[in-house]
Structure formats: C-alpha cells, structure tokens
Design a protein around this nucleic acid. Structure first.
Lengths: 198, 198
DNA sequence: GGGTTGACATACGCGTCGTATGTCCCGAAT
DNA sequence: ATTCGGGACATACGACGCGTATGTCAACCC
C-alpha cells in the first residue's frame, strides 16, 4: 500500500481526536464539550480539528459512525449466537437494550446524535444498526416465520422500541429489575410479527 | 379567584415568551435559537426570560410541558373515538405517529427535548403522553384483552416505537407512503400484546 | 536541493449565555 | 392620600466558545 508518512500521521491524529471526543461528548454532552479542552486532551489544537473534520458537527459524525459500527457488530454477534433466526432477532434487540446502558452510547448516539445530526436513518455512515436488523427481518420473512411486512418499517419500530427502552432502563432507579421488565415487554411486542404466535 | 393585576401580567408575559419560544425552537432548533431574538420577538428582553424561567433550559422545559400536554390530549381524543378499547390503543399510537409529523413536535419534543433535558420519563411535567398510554394498557389488561405485562414497560416500548416511526416518516422522501407502512407495522407489533392474536 | 503542498498552530472577530445592577410601578399600610 | 417595600422587567457587563484567517514548518516531487 506504501502509505506515505503524511497519511499515517493523519490517521493517527484523527484517531486521537475521535478518542478524546468520545470521552468528552460522553461525559459532558455535545453542547457542553469545549473544542479547546478536547483537542488539548488529545495533545493538539483546534487547528487539527477543523482541518480534519470541518466543524464540531463533523467530529460528532465521525464519532457516531464509529460507535454505530461497534453496536452493529455487537448485535450481529448476539444474533449469530442464537439457536434460530427468530431468537436471533430477539437477541439482537436485547443486545441493543443492554448496549444502550453504557452512558457513552446513551449520550452520544441516542440523545445528542439525533438532535445535532437529525434523523438517524439519514446518517451517511449508513446506520449499520438498522441495516443489521433489516437483514434479519428480511431473512425471517423469506423463511416464513414472520408475516410479510415492510422490512424497513418493522426494523425501525423494533429498534426504536429497544433503544427507547434502554433510555428508560438507564434512567431508572433500579436498572437490573427494570431491564428484565423491558426485555419481557420487548419479546411480547416482537412476537406480533410472527406468523404463528408463540 | 381574584387574581391580582401583577399575576395576570406575569401569566401574559410567560405566555408570550412560550409562544415565541415554540416558534424559534421549532424553526432554528434549541441550540441555534438566540434568547435575544426570541425575547425581542415577544416584545420583551432577556430580563423577563431569566426572571420567569431561570435559564434557557427552563424555557425549553415549559415549552415541552405545554406541547406534551397537547399531545396527550390529542391522543386521548383519538382513543375515545375508537369503537373498542383495543382499537383505542392503536389509534392512540397512530395519533402519535401523525402528530410527530409536525416539525414543531419533531424538533422540540423528540430531538432537542431529550438531548437537553435528558430522558423524557424523568420530565417533571409528568409526561402526560406516557401516562395516557399506560392507562389504556392497564384497562386492556384488566379487560383481559391484553396479556399481563408490566404496564410502564409496554407503554414505553409502544410509544417509543411510534415516535421513532414518526421521525422516520417525517425525514422520508415520500411521507404519505411511508406513513402507511409505519402504521401497518405498528399494528402488527402492537398485536403482540394481545392475548388472542387477531 | 529548491519549490510546492498540505498538516497543523496561533490570533482574531463575532455572537451568546448568565448575572449583576438599575428602574419603575403595583399594592398595602398608616 | 402618601409613603414605602417588593417584585417584574430592562440594561450593562464579563466570560466563553465557535469558526476563520493567517502563519509556520515539515514532507513529498522533480
């Protein structure tokens, strides 16, 4: 590949900035995070930031894309561990609920992300989470397990329910107990998609 | 009630500020809305703002509470127009989806609200929307139509799915068509709560 | 090895929030 | 009726943060 020295340095600084941004955005929220402090923490200045990401929103976009990819990867792993495809869909949802308990994901992806970047389904990072769920549902329909339904609509609703549940769980006084209730309700709701109710 | 002149003036300025805030927050978003412009539009200055609402977040809280109450009222009306209680729950959800198509609700309640004020279930304005759905589900369980399930969990998931669907619909290229798909998928999902699948 | 390009630092202007201070008028007490 | 206190709102001020414009130095190309 013969990646020149310039390019390697560039990737390094981008990585450092994204790392610092994940920390700052998660701890203080997007609005309260100072670009001066953030870049200083990364051992750089705002010059590097505006050169690499254009503006503050650009940095958030990069951070969200990275986390989104990690979430999708986790969900896919959860799905593949399940015995059947249908249980895979359930585990995928449960996985989202559990992942969203992490403050970093809460704050950045679920709260600030949509507010600053707009509707998640329009994110250019292609929204890996949504695509993963859509693929699973598509397969379930072809398999005959799930009733024919618009794949994107179902995926959106399922993910929306899961992520919203996670927000609720994380803000509750007793997360473990509430998590159990949320998962139970999620199973019930999801079963509405089944051709033969289980 | 013998409300004094002072109190009446106060209510008037609060109302004027909230009116201007709804407009500004909806059009420019919370972050980009200038308190100077906003208060000027209301024929006042920032002094009135900080006296009545404490800070910018306080104003947003007041706005969100007002809109939340209006949404809950609309949902209740939709529910009461339905033939059966179960159809009432569906209509309530559909009502949320349709209401959230208005940019004002989108921007203020669904995007900026959670980002600035945190998890909606913790909003002091008691989250009228959620309570309305909870009441409906509770009645459905007592009626025997819906399987026993944690009421708050079910309501959170149902509402989350609906509102998330609305975000998707509003951001789509062809809202009417997408709206139909969303409603269809919503019906399916909700039917998962039914004791006897229909 | 000199010129060019690009990555990043530094310096500045502009706008905004929150507060501290000032002003004026309603309402009550005498 | 006059005075006085307090509350509602206006004005003035300080601090901070974003984005841009300008500067600098090292890496690539010939």
């Amino acid at each position: 590949m013969a990646t020149g020295l310039r390019a390697r340095m560039m990737e390094e600084t981008r990585a450092k900035l994204i790392r610092a941004a994940r920390k700052a955005f998660a701890e203080k929220g997007y609005a309260a995070a100072s670009m001066d402090d953030l870049t200083a923490e990364a051992g750089l200045t705002r010059g590097a930031l505006y050169h690499n990401f254009g503006d503050k929103k650009g940095l958030l976009r990069a951070v969200v894309d990275e986390i989104d990819a990690e979430m999708a990867e986790g969900a896919r792993a959860a799905r593949d561990r399940a015995k059947t495809l249908w249980l895979g869909l359930i585990e995928e949802g449960v996985s989202y609920i559990e992942m969203a308990l992490e403050p970093e994901i809460q704050r950045i992806v679920l709260l600030d992300g949509p507010a600053v970047l707009g509707d998640p389904s329009r994110w250019p990072g292609q929204n890996a989470c949504l695509r993963t769920t859509m693929a699973t549902i598509q397969a379930l329909i072809e398999e005959g397990t799930v009733r024919p339904v618009d794949v994107e609509a179902a995926a959106r609703l399922i993910n929306g329910a899961a992520l919203n549940a996670a927000l609720w769980v994380a803000a509750s006084d007793n997360p473990p107990a509430v998590l159990a209730k949320a998962i139970e309700a999620f199973r019930l709701l999801a079963s509405g998609l089944l051709r033969e109710p289980g």
